[in-house]
Design a protein around this nucleic acid. Structure first.
Lengths: 375, 375
DNA sequence: CTGAAAGCGCTTACAG
DNA sequence: CTGAAAGCGCTTACAG
């Protein structure tokens, strides 16, 4: 068999991997294993194992010899075999939708910082769009011998099914931006309802009475929470929700553009302020207003949510007044907490962090000036 | 032993994972394995294996019974065991620095699309900053039983060492934005030298003669290539490189701001056009110009590189005229090609794609108007 | 179509 | 301090 193997990359190199040309299937075989190291160093596999796991009970002399052999052969332990034997992968998985979305800027920075502070390897998996099948596939993959725990981001309504399945297995995970209180899950959340209420209260405090709402991706739970926050605040402040004040977007935040156009065409009842479900939508809403020659915030105030540092499609409007959620901290904490959970170093038996939001004032909101809206 | 196990997440659920409370170490044990499925279904492990691998030679009746048992027990095969036995993980790893950087927008979209088109699981790993140790750790991790091949992004000079080590092992990989022709590596590149020459030629064709350069991250090879492109074009067009026309930034693109300030303070020889090593730098250079009340492009033209769709820190200057590299395509292709390579379906024996760049004209460059620069 | 047995490359009690 | 042997949870020729 040995003779039927050839080196896969380059031809002159003798590596530790070789292609199996004997069978039809293209597989990579390992040619230097712990067994070979043991033979060459003249010790048992147990001893080699002790050395690579940095255990204390090995004589200096033997250890040195083994280390030297390892170096010489370019040996590296096979993590699959290791995981199988140890019941531990030393890895953590992060699963999100649309990793490319600049929304993740701060969250990923947090994950990366967390990764730098732990000895676990962190791997990211991403499903495109709202793809449930892909997301579920990744969760199954990671939770079966590939990682020791996973962090699941997202509040898609379809995520509930995934989480249900995962819960049943008993595999450790923490949820970000999602919760199922009844299911005893570990989660890290912000209060979207309160954040939205604060936002609309803020607009009302600036004497706006005609406040509209552009809601977010209809497949997400946060959308509903923020929408309800809007409703509650409007009610609390005794403000009337005129016809068409509630504009729903599609899964695509660019549709905020068209929704804003609709709001601006409302004539007499045209809103003087709009609370958008997130900053990406707000950025497109403002774009629409500017394209129609409305000034933001003089003619119409626009408020967002998220404090998204990096906005899509080269946004150039005024700085967006928004509700901040501490995504960097959440990313960082999720890694730290999951690590602790896996090491049994957590005092509480369930992670349930609620992070507070705060309003960040920029340039897209102005007090209502008492002038009847231009029609 | 069974009695010393308890369920990790929640307490009422009987899952397939259970904590080992018997030993000191906290490990997850699998309580439902192929063996248990076989017993319950009254067949051999071989048969169960055939069913979960969807092989043809199983009678319908047996197959159905096994499938039903699997469903009932919530069984999922352990990927570590599978990888070990099959010599195949069915996964591909992607390793980058600074995954959070919006520079990756198009590249990640390409990877995601590629992932959607292949049956391989794609996992991303990210090292923070220019961290070599972290990057190398991930490469070692992924290339030892975790994935079947990896895609390595980045042209850090320190990457060479990593690639050398990886080459020695014979593990399959493809490089993006990096090449070692002498090492027979698979790579996907753009011609940075030519792209930069085109950019400076373009500025020269608009009658600019005083053209400066702000170079990029000094630890990257592309920086050197683009710098050389600038030099070559200046030479070819017989343009003088005045003192201080070459400004080097640090690893941080925000330093483009200070470098631009220096250029603008050059008095009589102040450049009328600046070619920046990348768009992120260009965005900060333009910011500096605007802050000093220079108009872009009327007072000074600025050109970038990359056609980065999403710029950092809320850039609001004019659209940046730039050199486009097809990152989406490169991301997509890298997954497809590596997949083919792994399946032995590649006709050529080495991947070596060079993608062409093209100039994208926006609003940050204007023809030189013949007026002596304002001092 | 089905099963017994060997093997993948490690780790881990256990015995010495 | 060291080694022989069993085991992790799968797959894979091989035999029937």
């Amino acid at each position: 068999m040995q003779k039927t193997l050839t080196c896969p990359q380059g031809t002159d190199i003798m590596g530790i991997w070789e292609w199996d040309r004997f069978h039809k299937k293209r597989r990579l075989y390992r040619v230097v294993t712990i067994k070979k190291v043991a033979e060459m160093a003249g010790v048992s596999r147990s001893t080699v194992s002790r050395v690579i796991n940095d255990e204390q009970n090995v004589s200096c002399k033997v250890k040195e010899r083994v280390l030297h052999t390892i170096q010489e052969l370019g040996y590296s332990p096979n993590n699959a075999a290791r995981s199988l034997a140890k019941h531990k992968t030393n890895a953590i998985g992060v699963v999100v939708n649309n990793l490319h979305d600049p929304f993740f800027y701060d969250l990923i920075r947090g994950f990366e910082q967390g990764a730098a502070e732990t000895s676990y390897n962190i791997v990211f998996c991403s499903a495109l769009g709202g793809d449930v099948v892909g997301k579920e596939r990744y969760v199954r993959y990671l939770s079966n011998g590939v990682t020791d725990g996973i962090i699941l981001y997202g509040s898609y309504i379809s995520d509930e099914h995934i989480i249900n399945e995962l819960s049943k297995t008993g595999f450790p995970y923490v949820l970000i931006e999602n919760d199922f209180s009844n299911k005893n899950t570990n989660c890290m959340l912000i209060d979207n309802l309160d954040g939205a209420k604060d936002a609309v209260d803020y607009l009302a405090s600036l004497h706006h009475t005609k406040i509209a709402h552009i809601s977010g991706n209809p497949n997400k739970k946060v959308t509903i929470d923020r929408f309800n926050g809007y409703l509650e605040s409007m009610h609390k402040n005794s403000l009337e929700i005129h016809e068409n004040y509630i504009q729903h977007t599609t899964a695509d935040y660019t549709s905020g553009y068209e929704r804003m156009k609709t709001l601006l065409s409302l004539g007499e009842n045209r809103p003087t302020a709009v609370f958008c479900s997130d900053d990406a939508i707000a950025s497109f809403a403002i774009r629409a207003a500017m394209d129609l020659s409305f000034r933001v915030p003089e003619d119409i105030s626009v408020m967002g949510f998220d404090n998204q540092k990096i906005l899509p499609d080269n946004y150039r409007g005024p700085g967006i007044t928004t509700v901040e959620q501490p995504l960097y901290q959440i990313g960082l904490d999720s890694i730290c907490l999951l690590t602790k959970l896996l090491e049994n170093k957590l005092t509480e038996k369930r992670i349930h962090n609620v992070y507070s939001t705060k309003i960040v004032i920029r340039d897209s909101v102005a007090p209502y000036n008492g002038v009847a809206p231009r029609v």
